[in-house]
Write a protein that binds this DNA or RNA. Structure first.
Lengths: 297, 297
DNA sequence: TCCCATTATATTCGATCTGACAATAAGGGG
DNA sequence: CCCCTTATTGTCAGATCGAATATAATGGGA
């Protein structure tokens, strides 16, 4: 799964009918699958992959086809890059906004995305269709948490849980069992081959979580950028709006960026200072998770 | 990597001369390696694995031996269980404190572990032995961050980084290149077969991070426990002390536990209330990472 | 030229959280 | 009944966070 953000849209590299993630067998000439992936993508996009991370390894029997008596092992990766370079890429691959596959995940407009109410209604329908009342309550609760019902807040990090719920409820095309038709693609999103959309959901979840404690966003930025551009990129990934002054405060007090001295020729209004990522922070600081109530030193 | 905590010691299941992690080839009769692992460990320990998580998949050429022209794929897992059940386990496997392999990681005594000063000295030596001054500074900084020099605080989540630094500096047995002898095992820890100690370091890092945002500790607890026992378990994993009142506040305000009504027949002092894990929280709440400066809803 | 729309940047404020520490409660043993 | 030990509760200052306000710099139009 190769991700880039341009013009405020989080995009993903696809092949085929925009329904397949780039993939291939390991070639033995590479030392690791990582380096194989890197070479392949750099050739395709003309841009180096700044960041690669393993997502998950699938080794289940019966994953590919129904009754193959052979185990296929697939290692999925998450990679970050930029797509600006208009390279003469083969027409077999292209960039797609990832919200085409998950329309319900884009909350940047301030209001819920179109179709989310439809999904909610059908999810409640599904929950109420459970066998016994206990299971009904349990389903309703899961749906309420994942999709932010009642007084609960929307949690952008639950992308995978949401996709799994929709799958379980038969509301995405991949899970259509013939019983009930899923909603139109504008609501339930574009389907992908095999379990590729699930891998995508895993990657989105991982990335939305990761940007909060490691400075990986900068892999998606141009060498210099304004703070608003940086914010828009984070918003694109998170799928929700961020408070501008607070975002600036956060970035500045962590000393993640430094001014270049230049200002941006922008789209109107006061010119914005240009910044660059301070790569030194990667050496200066350790970026780790959250905290625990510590004891006296 | 199978982890349990008993009597305040974080333990790990080993085979061989306590230098090998349990492992085996996938059997085709299992649907997934996960279920194969589960069955195998349950048979060995007599206790169900409460939690399994994939750690990392190694698929590099040359990982096993120097010049095998065959790719071996290893999927490593982290699993949590309890070891109380004195099962008639085969003598081939046993439990070892994980601090036997990482003595420098145990900061629960309040003071730095014995031997850490030796490692620090030799690490600085290694840093100063770099080719050019720039590389020297870079090494010193990495060492200072990972091992908490100067005014920097000890960060328990950097276990993997620390092990990798020690490896790079040739201070662990696995990395001995014949040049300089690593410190004695009491300082540099017990070595393991192949890269098993690196996998272990990965697992420790992951677990130390995970306990902070997901309630996985309870997989290591008995059905009922006192808050101090819970705290001691977390401390065992984190390798550092926790403030008691603050820990209690954290656990209670998140409603992770409920009183059983009983009190513990304890080792002296006021009896402690017994608690049990509220499994319902897993359904009630979503446990996700940290926060981002959000916008007005 | 001056005003205004637009966007950037700086500052403030109250609520909440966190680390640190003090105080009180409830047992057992001498 | 005193005292030791551990459990439990409470307090308090500083940091952090979400929210909102105030000021600055540009271009465009009256």
């Amino acid at each position: 799964m190769v991700v880039a953000v341009n013009d405020g849209e989080p995009c993903l590299l696809t092949i085929g009918q925009a329904d397949t993630l780039p993939s291939g067998p390991f070639a033995l000439e590479h030392r690791s699958p990582q380096s194989g992936l890197r070479g392949w993508v750099e050739q395709q996009t003309g841009h180096p992959l700044g960041y690669i991370e393993q997502l998950y390894t699938f080794a289940d029997r019966d994953r590919v086809g129904p009754q193959r008596q052979q185990r296929v092992i697939s290692i999925s990766y998450l990679a970050l890059t930029r797509k600006e370079q208009a390279t003469a890429a083969p027409s077999t691959c292209g960039w797609q906004s990832w919200y085409e596959y998950f329309p319900w995940e884009d909350h940047r407009s301030g209001s819920p995305p179109v179709g989310l109410d439809v999904l909610r209604a059908r999810l409640i329908e599904w929950a109420d269709g459970a066998d016994d009342p206990a299971r009904q309550r349990e389903r309703r609760q899961r749906v309420a948490i994942a999709f932010g019902f009642d007084d609960r807040h929307w949690n952008e990090e639950l992308t995978l849980q949401r996709y799994e719920l929709l799958y379980e409820a038969g509301l995405v095309e991949e899970a259509s069992d013939g019983k009930a038709a899923p909603p139109p693609a504008a609501v339930s999103g574009k389907a992908m081959v095999a379990d590729h959309r699930r891998i995508l959901a895993t990657g989105v979840t991982r990335l939305r979580s990761k940007i909060k404690y490691r400075p990986v966003v900068f892999e998606l930025m141009r060498p210099t950028f304004t703070l608003l551009q940086l914010q828009r990129t984070v918003e694109a990934l998170a799928g929700r709006l961020i408070d501008k002054p607070n975002f600036r405060r956060l970035v500045e007090q962590q000393e993640l960026v430094e001014e270049t001295g230049d200002t941006s020729v922008d789209t109107g209004g006061r010119p914005a200072k240009l910044y660059r990522f301070r790569r030194a922070v990667l050496d200066e600081r350790a970026f780790a998770g959250t905290k625990l109530p510590m004891s006296r030193a």
